[in-house]
Write a protein that binds this DNA or RNA. Structure first.
Lengths: 139, 139
DNA sequence: CTACATTAGTTGGTGTCACAAACTAAACGA
DNA sequence: TCGTTTAGTTTGTGACACCAACTAATGTAG
């Protein structure tokens, strides 16, 4: 019954599955996909609003509200820049970091289930191929 | 430099890449991701609003507006059901079908680029693994 | 040193999209 | 026939995305 969907449909459907799983886990913590990406990006950075807009590929005016809402929930804070009085740094709080890690754990469990039909070597092969595709890509 | 990201991060990042490509192609035709999914689902079905809600995992009240907007653009139509005067069938128009196919072609080109770093056998392997994961999944 | 341009970020306005709750109309069932 | 489901829409709210216009601070040319 192993009907091969082809690389285009295969990848498309796979990504809907995986993104759907992530979206559900995020929603369980009242997070949108964008919020998850925000937390993810902030794990190892403290960017300004403009850099954040570039990283998330959003308009900078979208960042204001995004950070407002996350900030209202105590997930991030705006720290005024030392050197530039116009600028701010958006920083993950401890609470934000903890939530990000929790979502990552939950999502990891989902992925484990998704690929549970593959043998261990197959899982490693899939992981390796995915990594290769990512490396190759512009980002 | 082939740094393996692990199955979780690897799949996550891969899906962001692929979904990003699809979203951009869709946006080029003024389509949201949801609109694309709508057109995709309608390619081989003419579901009612409730079935559509189930297929897209949306509330049925969300379907009304979605179909309204697509219908205003002439991409779909509401056909009153023969047997049940309450019900409608949502049907792809020729214009809608043509647009769906165009987006699919564009997206296919993007995928080809994305996986162009893989050899042909590797691409087939990735496709096969993706298909296996999809089959296994509940849907 | 001042005047102009640039940069950082916010504000205000619009539209999409998602939900929940309430509603209308048709169909079903006892 | 009368109450209950079922199909779909309406109404109201909020997140999110964009653009254009704005404020405030920086930078730079003369």
């Amino acid at each position: 019954m192993s009907q091969d969907l082809g690389i285009v449909d295969g990848l498309a459907q796979l990504t809907f599955l995986v993104q759907g799983a992530l979206a559900k886990r995020a929603a369980a913590h009242d997070l949108s996909m964008t919020q998850v990406r925000l937390l993810g990006v902030l794990r190892d950075r403290r960017p300004g609003v403009n850099q954040l807009a570039a990283l998330l590929e959003l308009d900078k005016s979208s960042i204001t509200g995004l950070v407002d809402r996350a900030s209202a929930r105590g997930l991030v804070t705006r720290v005024p820049s030392e050197r530039d009085r116009r600028a701010v740094e958006v920083v993950l709080t401890d609470r934000g970091r903890a939530l990000a890690e929790e979502v990552e754990r939950d999502f990891g469990a989902d992925v484990a289930v998704l690929v549970s039909g593959l043998t261990d070597p197959e899982q490693r092969r899939l992981s390796a191929l995915a990594s290769r595709v990512i490396e190759t890509s512009p980002a």
